[in-house]
């Protein structure tokens, strides 16, 4: 393989890695506020993409309005999942929480199957399909949109978490819910907000991804696993770990697919997950969060 081919793979890996990073960011947002690992996170991306397809192609709304509405609807579904599935369980064990989010994920998948059938659907690219040529490297315009979306979301979340009272209240809720409640923070509101933000990030990811790949009702499951793998690779509990893990997973996976038969691409992600869990469970950027995930 020529050097330019490797460079092309690297660029492609960064684009898909950014998507994985955004999915991982969704996991982190909920985890930091509620200590819940939400297995329905990938399904938020699926819903964001498929709701946009529906609103654009069936309801015939303008593309931007369809996208915004899809994010709002998915965000509302995120809040409902918290309200109806997570909140009633209170401080249940981690295993119980995992089980209910897996149940929620299956519920969303089957709902999507009934609503939109199993046929794949896609969206038109935001600004055409003609690749931008940098020498021998072709960059898809949609990849640039994904980079831009990721930059905006990460910046917004950074500002929210570190420079607003609301963000500090969310962090306080995650650190010590009782102490946060004592000083007047509505912990349930903070958790509800984290689910809304996480679902919005997931829906945005699906909306920006659907012009590159086709999505169907089952796409959320594999996307969720990729996001979880990225988070485990980068290190649990931090937004930076999520993004770094996503980019690393995307590039490794794409290089692997370049070297090995492409059918092994998903297997590479799972292999990485196993190796990381075995040799460095705290991930690349090593946070203590992983220790708190023991199934007690």
């Amino acid at each position: 393989m020529r050097a330019s081919d490797w460079l092309q793979l690297f660029v492609s890996g960064l684009a898909i890695g950014t998507v994985y990073g955004m999915l991982a960011l969704g996991f982190v947002t909920i985890y930091r506020a509620s200590r819940v690992v939400n297995f329905a996170q990938g399904d938020f991306a699926m819903l964001g993409g498929l709701f946009t397809v529906y609103l654009l192609k069936t309801v015939h709304l303008p593309y931007p309005l369809a996208g915004v509405l899809a994010v709002v609807i998915t965000s509302t579904i995120g809040i409902l999942i918290y309200q109806l599935v997570i909140a009633p369980l209170g401080r249940a064990s981690l295993v119980s929480m995992l089980m209910v989010t897996i149940g929620a994920s299956l519920f969303l998948q089957n709902g999507a199957l009934i609503a939109w059938t199993s046929y794949p659907a896609d969206l038109p690219s935001f600004s055409g399909d003609a690749p931008i040529r940098l020498g021998t490297i072709a960059i898809l315009p949609q990849s640039l949109w994904i980079f831009l979306m990721a930059a905006v979301v990460v910046t917004a979340l950074y500002l929210l978490t570190n420079h607003t009272l609301l963000g500090k209240a969310m962090t306080a809720t995650a650190t010590d819910p009782l102490a946060a409640a004592v000083v007047g923070v509505s912990t349930s509101s903070m958790m509800r907000l984290s689910f809304a933000i996480s679902a919005s990030v997931g829906a945005l990811t699906g909306l920006f991804l659907a012009p590159m790949l086709t999505l169907n009702y089952a796409s959320g499951a594999i996307l969720g696993i990729k996001g979880l793998t990225a988070l485990t690779l980068g290190g649990w509990g931090t937004a930076t770990g999520a993004i770094v893990g996503g980019l690393a997973l995307g590039v490794i996976e794409t290089f692997g697919a370049g070297l090995l038969p492409a059918g092994y691409k998903d297997a590479i992600a799972f292999l990485i997950l196993i190796l990381i869990l075995y040799f460095r469970p705290s991930g690349i950027l090593g946070s203590a969060g992983s220790e708190e995930l023991s199934l007690d």
């Binding site: 092309q8 370049g258 691409k265």
Partner: peptide
């Protein structure tokens, strides 16, 4: 290369 029925991302196969 090959792929499984149900795969959503065939960009690696197409790239080759």
């Amino acid at each position: 290369d090959t792929f499984a029925p149900g795969d959503v991302d065939l960009s690696s196969q197409v790239s080759k």
